[in-house]
């Protein structure tokens, strides 16, 4: 994203902050019938995925729209800083959300043959929430990042 568009997005976010607050009331009503979200469930999933290792912030970058109009299909790109050589590469990236009915999004397994540790996909978000990614490196270290997406129309509709 260029600097100019980044700045434009920032001011747009300020403008829309009020509108998002209003929409929040509607989303809560809708969620009363949905499956309850277990707090901390996403952390359990991550801990299990990396075998309980501690994650340090950094190296991982999540690119998502700050405001996702349609929660059914939110584009997401996760990239990890790594030379991707046989001795130093990303082994896996685990992605979870903290407010979907189920926290898991996906696990992506890389090899040095990828040349670049980056994956793009489209995900479902039932409401505004954080997306958290853990990257497991070949040396055993774990790095993490999080990003928030504001969702105006949830992605769990029936």
């Amino acid at each position: 994203m260029s600097l100019v568009s980044e700045m434009a997005a920032l001011s747009r976010r300020r403008l829309l902050a009020g509108a998002a607050g209003l929409a929040g009331g509607l989303i809560v009503v809708r969620d009363a019938s949905a499956q309850a979200v277990q707090p901390g469930a996403h952390q359990q999933v991550l801990d299990k995925a990396v075998g309980g290792k501690k994650a340090q912030p950094g190296k991982v970058k999540i690119r998502m729209p700050e405001i996702a109009e349609n929660g059914n299909t939110v584009p997401m790109t996760v990239s990890v800083e790594s030379p991707m050589t046989a001795s130093d590469h990303v082994k896996a990236v685990h992605v979870v959300t903290d407010n979907n009915p189920r926290p898991e999004v996906g696990s992506f397994y890389f090899t040095p043959a990828n040349g670049k540790a980056e994956v793009s996909t489209r995900i479902r978000l039932s409401q505004t929430m954080n997306v958290i990614a853990y990257a497991e490196m070949s040396d055993g270290s774990v790095w993490s990042s999080r990003a928030e997406a504001k969702v105006t129309i949830g992605g769990c509709g029936g």
Binding site: R102, E104, V105, Y109, T111, N114, V119, R122, R124
Partner: peptide, 26 residues
């Protein structure tokens, strides 16, 4: 790639319908 696994993904229901996946290969 020529019989050797280069990339794998495990997907949960939070992946959108008509899954799109983009990645790199040397």
């Amino acid at each position: 790639y020529n019989g050797k696994e280069v990339f794998r993904a495990e997907m949960a229901p939070a992946i959108s319908a008509n899954p799109y996946m983009a990645f790199f290969v040397t």
